[in-house]
């Protein structure tokens, strides 16, 4: 088959694998801090009523997006969710155009027409965030179908929250992916809550048991440990890339904020004590900080330096987005059809 529209854009090297171990994990650190500080700015901008719509923050879950995207090539595909800023950044999007999109500005990744829940970026293989829970499982599996049919060597990663385990279409495509041995990895970000309901109230059986039913290679990992996530993701992704078939990865994690920024009183569904425990004992940035300093790869000063560089980038991204113009109203009828 010809590959008219799908030339690989980069070599087979994982985006984050460049350089030494130290460089790799310092890069991971920077990316996790980028997501954390991006979301801090979102919270700020949202609270100042500058951002229309809804904002679902990824804070607390950074190690998953970063650990997995570090195991991907630039031309590999991802699909994302309503809680998608972290995936988008980790895959390589730039914060200024992301913020512009969040504010509905023309300079945004989707010219302001997608917003927070629909950012897509072909240049980094991001097929798009999706505001339908489980809505992108078909798209990711289809991208893997293309990769296999055209022999491009690409892999597709499908991020979804454990809430999507309730959607039948997930199991339809898992069945297809295993039958056809497609290079796709399903990543279940189990942050414990489907909106305001604990997942154990909505999920019968076990999460991995679902993958086992289809004979899909499956693993679970501490989603707060970026190195652990990266290690297992690398194995499963390379297995898929070399024709070994699909994989399912359960990442246990926690979202620090409400379901969305306005979800402030949360005691009726989870305790402050539980939140505190995750934030102090299992924070993904602290976990990596500890490892980096123990190894002598970094010290407090060098990590602070990274954080302040990132903060400056995020602040200027927000400034850029606030100053950027809205699309012209005649844009409204553009791109309905290609």
């Amino acid at each position: 088959m010809t590959t008219a529209t799908s030339k690989p854009q980069a070599g087979p090297k994982p985006a984050g694998a460049a350089g030494t171990e130290k460089e790799k994990w310092l890069h991971a650190y920077r990316q996790m801090v980028s997501i954390r500080l991006f979301e801090e700015q979102v919270n700020e901008v949202y609270t100042r009523a500058l951002m229309p719509g809804l904002a679902h923050l990824y804070s607390g879950e950074e190690a998953i997006a970063v650990g997995i995207c570090q195991a991907l090539r630039v031309d590999d595909y991802i699909t994302s969710t309503h809680r998608g800023h972290g995936h988008c950044l980790a895959k390589g999007a730039s914060p200024d155009r992301m913020f512009a999109e969040l504010l509905g500005k023309e300079a945004g990744y989707c010219r302001g027409k997608g917003g927070s829940m629909h950012i897509a970026d072909p240049a980094t293989g991001n097929l798009g965030a999706n505001a339908i829970v489980g809505g992108s499982v078909g798209i990711a599996t289809g991208a893997a179908f293309t990769a296999k049919t055209l022999g491009t060597g690409r892999v597709a990663v499908c991020f979804f929250g454990e809430g999507a385990l309730g959607q039948g279409s997930l199991y339809e495509v898992m069945n297809l992916a295993q039958l056809w041995q497609l290079p796709v990895m399903y990543v279940c970000e189990n942050n414990q809550y489907n909106e305001y309901t604990h997942y154990q109230e909505t999920t019968a059986g076990t999460i991995l048991g679902r993958a086992a039913a289809f004979g899909i290679e499956a693993a679970s990992v501490d989603g707060q440990d970026v190195r652990a996530v990266n290690e297992v993701a690398t194995r499963l992704i390379e297995r898929a890339r070399s024709g070994g078939g699909p994989a399912f990865l359960q990442c246990d994690t926690y979202r620090y904020s409400g379901h969305h920024v306005g979800d402030i009183n949360r005691e009726y569904y989870r305790s402050k004590q539980e939140e505190h425990l995750w934030k102090t004992d299992r924070d993904p940035i602290l976990v990596l900080t500890k490892w980096l300093t123990e190894r002598g790869y970094a010290d407090a000063a060098s990590l602070d330096q990274i954080a302040s560089e990132v903060r400056a980038i995020m602040e200027s991204a927000v400034k850029f987005a606030i100053a950027a113009p809205y699309p012209n109203v005649d844009e409204v009828e553009k791109h309905v059809y290609a």
Binding site: G108, C110, G114, G128, K334, H335
Partner: peptide
Amino acid sequence: HYMSGGHW
């Protein structure tokens, strides 16, 4: 197509 601002 629309949501991606014409990208996909």
